[in-house]
Design a protein around this nucleic acid. Structure first.
Length: 287
DNA sequence: CCCCGAACCTGACAGC
DNA sequence: TGCTGTCAGGTTCGGG
């Protein structure tokens, strides 16, 4: 579900309330959700452990990072349907989950896969119907390894047409596939890939090594403006995505092609499978 | 290097 | 109403 703008929105909200909190317990309700690095043998999810103080919360690509004073980090990936919700009175929440009750809560307890309990009796709930989302506990020194696997941040100055030209050199892959490749650029998913390609008037099937300099520049501009506008809208809420406070983003009101029948100029859109993903494009506007 | 399909899951929705 | 099939915003793996 969530792509860069949605994850960025969530991270900004977490930055408001998480730093300074002391994590005391991590509970896992769906096996395999929380994975502890083999380099952290001292951490046992079955016991109450002092995990330290949250010093920093940030985003890289679609990953959310919580950095702790005790020298390790938690990496969260929401995948398709993951959601994070901050709740007060953590102790009563836990009882409800264990008893599978849904007393006064508007959210669905049955999809809670893990909870982080803090010393002030608040908690961060990880809710994920499809169970694809993952939470990793790693030593802080391993963060760099994860960063190295990701391409540049699309909104950074390093991400420009020179970089893309280099990355696309002699690559015989389609433009659509390249935008979804997190090693090339980090954070773009299927919805924004469709929107970006419509905005820069390029067909998803274009082979990246054949792009002209001008097309690369237009592509980079479309990537940056689309993502920035979506962040300003707090993301796109199509079905599952909600912000930490359960409010919705509003960028779905500005989508031009994803899920549409025709483009803003009235041409019928084509829907093809690219890389196994629904791809909406305008055969008239996009070249 | 590149492509494709499968796998991980549940829920929503269309059609009969 | 209820069954069945299809689809869903992500990532990783193996095989060709």
């Amino acid at each position: 579900m969530p792509e860069l703008p949605e994850v960025e929105t969530i991270v900004r909200e977490l930055q408001e309330c998480l730093p300074g909190k002391q994590l005391t317990v991590i509970e896992e309700f769906y096996p395999g959700t929380v994975r502890v690095s083999s380099k952290l043998p001292s951490i046992n999810l079955n016991h109450c452990v002092f995990y330290g103080i949250i010093e920093e919360v940030f985003r890289r690509g679609k990953y959310i990072y919580l950095v702790f004073s005790s020298g390790y980090a938690i990496v969260i990936h929401l995948r398709m349907t993951g959601k994070l919700v901050i709740l007060s009175r953590a102790s009563s929440i836990k009882d409800n989950i264990v008893n599978n009750q849904n007393n006064d809560h508007s959210y669905d307890l049955k999809h809670i896969r893990a909870t982080f309990i803090f010393s002030d009796d608040t908690s961060l709930i990880f809710n994920d119907p499809r169970t694809f989302g993952k939470i990793d506990l790693i030593p802080f020194c391993d963060l760099e390894l994860l960063f190295d696997k990701l391409g540049y941040e699309p909104l950074s100055s390093e991400f420009n047409s020179d970089y893309l030209g280099e990355a696309f050199l002699e690559r015989r892959i389609s433009l659509k596939k390249s935008l979804l490749n997190q090693n090339i650029v980090a954070g773009i998913g299927n919805i924004y890939a469709n929107e970006i390609l419509y905005r820069c008037k390029l067909l998803p099937s274009r082979i990246v090594s054949n792009l002209l300099e001008e097309e690369l520049i237009n592509l980079v501009t479309a990537i940056k403006t689309t993502l920035a506008e979506a962040i300003d809208c707090n993301g796109t809420s199509i079905s599952d995505y909600r912000r930490v406070d359960d409010k919705q983003g509003t960028f779905q009101n500005f989508l031009q092609v994803y899920g549409k029948k025709s483009c803003p100029l009235g041409h019928s859109l084509s829907v093809d499978k690219f890389d196994g993903r629904s791809t909406y494009y305008c055969p008239v506007c996009q070249k």
